[in-house]
Amino acid sequence: MNLALDIFTVSAVSAGALFFLAGTVGLLRFPDSLTRLHALTKVDNLGLGLVVLGLLPQTNGLFGALKLVSIWLLVQLSGAIVTQLIAGTVRRRGSNG
């Protein structure tokens, strides 16, 4: 049981780390600010989500798990908002402002 959980953690966290790498590659390669926003918020949020998922079995108690999930939810929220705000700025001023 313990081993299974550990394997789950390792695989989920590894997947999360890979998404972070993908996000960075996206930032590096995407041509303009709007597409780069996708790389930053969507991909990285997925990465964080996988890391949180992977760490859930390692936490002790419901409260700790709840806190982890709420961190992810908060980042989701702020990712969505930040994307909107920055995209709005880009639209008003052009992408090189």
Partner: peptide, 23 residues
């Protein structure tokens, strides 16, 4: 050069930094 790109930095640390700290 674009300032909108700079604005992404804090968000990046929210996700990436958060993941690092949780780990």
């Amino acid at each position: 050069p674009a300032e909108v790109d700079h604005m992404m930095a804090a968000q990046l640390l929210g996700t990436g930094g958060g993941a690092i700290l949780l780990l």
